[in-house]
Structure formats: structure tokens, C-alpha cells
Nucleic acid binder design. Structure first.
Lengths: 103, 103
DNA sequence: ATCTTTAATCGTTTATCTACGATAAACGAT
DNA sequence: ATCGTTTATCGTAGATAAACGATTAAAGAT
């Protein structure tokens, strides 16, 4: 490895990827989505309907929020017949925390 | 202190305030604002014009981003004659990190 | 008093977000 | 094959965000 590429490596690990970090922040930039993440953490995993019950929002709205969280990579959703079972993606959550601590 | 209020206290410290956390996330939900915060951290403090120079954005746009960050409490701005000197509010930044680690 | 510099605000356009009801899709059960 | 349940998507309305140029405000310099 050249000196230059080594420094580039170091910079890469030290540096915060603004796009990556801001995009996760954006996914968390709504109280309902924070509540969803907290609830999923507490429940370990659960289906959409259970999440809908805990929020004062229409099912379609909750589904949209879940989509935003899923697109950010913070949660995963697995289709099980007519239901979808959601859970936290802890890898991504840890990545977020690491980036948050770097800022 | 009653048992109940003690538990309320504990819950309060353990619990994440969704509104507070999501509102800071919202302030950080744009790459330009992440870059501003990073730059301010590196520079310790600097005037608006220096920040404008580092970004590919119009002065008015940068000013708007600074306003968002200031409203979130993450940065402070002090007027010094015709200039404004900005710096990080480390209390708020630490608060954010604490909240991020709780999620 | 006028000029210059610096930063905030205004006004506008375009894009994105939030919320909802309605509808569609998927699938198990009957 | 039809029904009921569950969730995603569509369509829409209103609100908020992002970007810019133009203008205003503040204050030091001439």
C-alpha cells in the first residue's frame, strides 16, 4: 500500500460520510419514526399492525414511515404470508451511533 | 420522593424524548449542515463567509442552513460588527450523542 | 455623509414530506 | 372460488424544505 493510499484509508475511516450520516438522520427526523425504532427495539420484532396500534396515525401513514426506515437500512421487514414482520438492523444502528459519535 | 415519582424520574432519564431527538436529527438531515458542523469543529470558530467559501452554495442558502443549525441549538452565532462568528454548542452536541446512543 | 463589507431576510420556484382515505395485492381459511 | 385479514401502494392536499437572486440592515472605513 502506498503512503498516499494509506493516508486515504485513514482519512476514510476518520472522516464522516456526510451523505450517509445525513440520510440516516433524515430517516430519524420524525418523532413517529423514533417511536417505531424504540418500539421495535423493545419488542425485538413485531408485525406492522402492532406498530399501528401504538401510534395515533393511520395504517397507511405508518406504512410510509416504515418504508422510510426500511430504505434507510435501519430496519428490516420480512414478509410472512399476509403480514410483514419488522425488526431492527443492529448493524446499521451501530453504524449510525459510530457516526454520531464522530460528529 | 415517592416511589412513583422516582420511577417517573428514572423513566425520564432512560427514555428518549422523541421530539427532542428527532428535531436535532432533522437539523442534521442535510449533508451541507453536517459539513458546516464538521468545519466548525475543526476551526473552533469562524465567520459565516469562511463557511460559504467551503460550500458550493449561495451565501443566502448557507445562511439558511446556519439558521436551521442555530435553531436546533447545535451551534451558536455571535454578532461582531458586520460579521457573525459561529461556533459549536458542545453541550447540545453531547446531548445529541447521548440520545443517539440510547436509541 | 458615503462607501464597502458582511450577513440576514424576502420573494419565488421547485421539490419533498406528511397525512389521510381508498384501493390493490397477498395469503390463509372456509 | 370466495371471504377476511393484513399490509403496501395510489392519489391527493397542504405544509415544509431547498435553492437562488435581490434587497435590506448593520457597522467599520474613508
Amino acid at each position: 500500500m502506498t503512503k498516499k493510499s494509506k493516508r486515504a484509508e485513514t482519512e476514510k475511516t476518520d472522516m464522516l460520510d456526510e451523505e450517509a450520516f445525513s440520510s440516516i438522520c433524515k430517516a430519524l427526523a420524525h418523532p413517529a419514526r423514533i417511536r417505531i425504532v424504540s418500539f421495535l427495539k423493545k419488542m425485538n420484532q413485531c408485525i406492522c399492525g402492532e406498530i399501528v396500534e401504538t401510534l395515533p396515525l393511520a395504517q397507511s401513514t405508518v406504512s410510509q414511515h416504515l418504508k422510510v426506515l426500511k430504505n434507510s437500512g435501519l430496519i428490516k421487514g420480512e414478509i410472512e404470508g399476509p403480514r410483514t414482520c419488522y425488526c431492527i438492523d443492529y448493524d446499521m444502528l451501530e453504524k449510525f451511533k459510530k457516526m454520531a459519535n464522530k460528529i
